[in-house]
Write a protein that binds this DNA or RNA. Structure first.
Lengths: 233, 233
DNA sequence: GGGACAATTTGCGCTGGCGCAAACTCAAGA
DNA sequence: TCTTGAGTTTGCGCCAGCGCAAATTGTCCC
């Protein structure tokens, strides 16, 4: 822990409402680790032993179907808590977590959750607030999958990525971790071919620029229009 | 409260791990009400004032899109807690709840949540366990929407309904509340026409029997096969 | 008992997007 | 510099499932 930047950590939303002393007490029980790009933090169906906070990097949460198809449930950004099976009374992880880039992660043993939640209600409340918004987001995604066309869903996905993990550059908002056409397809329930065709079309129109595992949104406004289009684009 | 059957209520999973005294204390703050078929318990986007337990009946949780399309998020069965916005730090309900049949419901003011959760940890834990399985279910639904064909999704939906709210009759497992083709379509992201065609086909094959707002599963096993079919049925 | 409406069924034509396949293009390592 | 392989692009054909429309059936209410 000593090696990590305490001031950075104490600024995380997760620790808001806690005194520096309390923060220290919570952090004392954490173990920090590094995960190289494309390695797993935990695997779907595995016995849940810990919960985590992402200190640096980006994490992909993935569900794999019995026949091997993958669906990206969400991306985790810096500062977010994840793998909170314990807080929700689960004994296994419902999905896998994979480092999208090299990552630094704090981990607490699940056994500590009840005590931490009891002694630091603000800590528990923040976690449950996060869970609440994830439940809502996931429901929104079901609604999108049910009612929107592929083009709208891909536009929405890019907008979300740009908002959550976008980095402003002089040519637009760049998604600041490597993301392939295949990844975008797995987020939106389509195929890499269809994503590729859409991105090509949008690039022609000047709405985005994209390269290998890279997308930059140049004209978010027109992307919003595409995402909202009731029927034909 | 006096009018309600206490022994029935104390058998609910939600109250497990609590002494009769504690149960009484929690119930003292509840208000019970009836909702006629097709009336709303709460509306999407409305200020969240209470959380609820369904004592009798069946409730449909629905999200409506800006352009008026509806998606059924889930059905609530007897004994389940719902509308728990408070426990998740939300101030509005993310969806509407509508009585699918005449219902009896207990309601607690949201303001009581923090105290109840603090004084009766088992109560809070059970609630969060429920939230956890709902998050997982919802994710499963995203995966299904992303990877399965309509036929498999409808088969899965019927199986789930049969398991959760099925009533055994001599002709099979009957879903014990009125459910239309349109409802099934809104649960599976398709149209009532397609649902109707599928049900007709399955009825011909003797897998189900169905009528107006009524479905009875006769051969769950063959339905499972349909639900699992990797590609063509 | 009969009218009126809501739910369901079914036919038909169309198309969004998938599956397959092949070509192309970077980026990194040898 | 050259090789290699992963990521991407693009053409082509097809079909699951939607949209529209019309007929039919069951239910509730008067």
């Amino acid at each position: 822990m000593a090696a990590l930047d305490r001031s950075l950590i104490s600024r995380l939303p997760l620790f808001q409402g806690l005194t520096p002393d309390e923060q220290g007490e919570i952090l004392r029980d954490a173990r920090s680790s590094r995960y190289a790009k494309e390695t797993a933090i935990f695997a779907q169906e595995a016995e849940a032993h810990s919960f985590f906070v992402l200190i640096a990097g980006h994490i992909r949460v993935v569900r794999t179907t019995p026949d091997g198809q993958q669906v990206i449930v969400r991306y985790i950004s810096e500062g977010e808590i994840f793998g909170v099976a314990a807080a929700l009374g689960r004994t296994t992880y419902p999905a896998s977590a994979v480092a999208a880039v090299d990552c630094v992660v704090l981990a607490w043993p699940n056994a500590l959750w009840p005590e931490l939640a009891r002694r630091f209600p603000a800590f528990g409340a923040t976690t449950y607030r996060t869970v609440g918004s994830r439940l809502q987001e996931t429901q929104t995604r079901v609604v999108e999958m049910s009612t929107e066309q592929v083009e709208q869903r891909v536009a929405n996905a890019l907008l979300r990525l740009a908002n959550q993990t976008g980095r402003k550059t002089d040519s637009g908002i760049e998604i600041d971790f490597p993301i392939s056409r295949q990844d975008i397809a797995e987020m939106t329930g389509t195929t890499l071919h269809t994503v590729s065709r859409l991105l090509s079309k949008w690039e022609e129109k000047g709405i985005i620029v994209s390269g290998r595992q890279k997308v930059t949104v140049k004209d978010a406004h027109r992307l919003v229009v595409l995402a909202e289009n009731r029927d034909k684009g």
